[in-house]
Nucleic acid binder design. Structure first.
Length: 349
DNA sequence: CGTTTGTCTAGGTAATGGTG
DNA sequence: CACCATTACCTAGACAAACG
């Protein structure tokens, strides 16, 4: 059972100590539609801030499971902080940013961008912290919301943001929490994020990092292997987002035993990977020991017709397994006949 | 401590068996 | 045949135990 499963059982509504100020605000807090409706109503500026703050507090509960302290947090936050509209240019990406470039090219990102465009800005605020010595560079650094920031930036819209005051470790944890909650970070992206935190000495060990953020050390270790893969190997894939946790051991062995071979196989794939699935690329890189993928012939289907009607089909998949389907009703005598036929057939093979 | 190995499970997909 | 609901099967990631 993962964290998310536990979290999903929490009834957030019951955690809200402040009664909603109007019926509209009583609608689900997370439904984009409800949020959007509020956001579009200029008079509800204050309501929206409250809503957003409550939601924020509820999120910290969700992940930490600290129900009591969250309620306190909630009360201390109520009305204490507000969101601000900031110029995207005044904000820089975090040093711990984990988003790969292709995250900003995906279908999902385009959808987010459209949504923000229609709403005239990001309804769900991002979180930033003030930069210590800005000079004439950006004044803020993103804690989370890199995609929303990028979308607003591309659209030339101001970004709705919380400004918070966090040290490096808190920044990292807030960011990690937000990302994991959405569960759309790939294994490799997670690895990159964890590697940065470790390289910068935020945590003394993988295990301590894992327990600080409530993640399994096993998977963290696997993600790190993926993140530290040689560039050439990464390039063999259409996107590093395709990398999977379970491949880490095979990659590690390959690196230790035959790095040169691995890289030359990677180079070969880079020059021609058309039509290869990520899984096939992985198999080609690490050799035949994992999932022997021989050139998979596509399934063939043969139809048997009588008087223009399909009476039977025979389908044979890439591995030679077959499905024979007879579309007409068989008398019991014919059924026995077929059974005998099959009996003889399997005996012979 | 980092990592390996193996098991378990949720979620997705394909196959199957009815039905109109 | 197309369509739908059910079932079987597979996969990725979460977890536990254990190794060096």
């Amino acid at each position: 059972m993962g964290l998310k499963d536990k979290a999903s059982k929490i009834d957030f509504a019951s955690l809200m100590p402040v009664p909603p100020l109007n019926p509209e605000a009583a609608k689900p807090k997370t439904a984009p539609g409800a949020m959007m409706a509020l956001a579009n109503d200029q008079r509800s500026e204050l309501l929206r801030e409250n809503d957003v703050l409550r939601q924020q507090a509820a999120k910290s509960v969700e992940l930490e499971g600290r129900l009591q302290s969250a309620v306190e947090e909630l009360q201390s936050w109520d009305g204490a902080k507000a969101t601000r509209l900031l110029d995207p240019k005044a904000i820089k990406r975090s040093v711990y940013a984990n988003r790969h470039e292709s995250s900003f090219k995906s279908e999902g990102f385009e959808a987010l961008k459209r949504e923000i465009k229609e709403a005239g800005g990001n309804v769900q605020p991002i979180k930033v912290r003030a930069v210590a010595n800005p000079g004439d560079g950006p004044q803020f650094e993103i804690v989370f919301g890199h995609r929303r920031h990028e979308a607003c930036s591309q659209l030339g819209l101001p970004v709705l943001a919380f400004v918070d005051n966090l040290d490096d470790q808190a920044l990292f944890e807030a960011m990690e929490r937000e990302n994991r909650e959405r569960a759309d970070l790939s294994a490799w992206e997670q690895g990159v994020m964890y590697a940065r935190a470790l390289d910068r000495g935020l945590y003394p060990s993988i295990r301590q990092l894992a327990s600080a953020i409530g993640v399994d050390a096993t998977n963290l270790s696997k993600a790190l292997v993926l993140a530290r893969l040689p560039g050439k190997v990464l390039d063999a894939f259409a996107s590093p987002l395709d990398l999977q946790f379970r491949w880490s051991t095979a990659f590690k062995t390959a690196i230790e035993s035959d790095l040169a071979g691995l890289e030359s196989r990677a180079a070969k794939i880079i020059s021609n990977r058309s039509g290869m699935t990520p899984k096939q690329i992985f198999a080609a890189l690490t050799g035949p020991q994992e999932s022997p993928v021989q050139a998979q012939a596509p399934a063939t289907v043969q139809a048997f017709e009588r008087e223009g009607k399909t009476v039977a089909t025979m389908k044979i998949d890439g591995e030679g397994r077959s499905v024979i389907r007879i579309h007409v009703r068989l008398t019991s005598a014919r059924q026995r006949e077929l059974a005998k036929l099959l009996e003889r057939f399997v005996d012979a093979s």
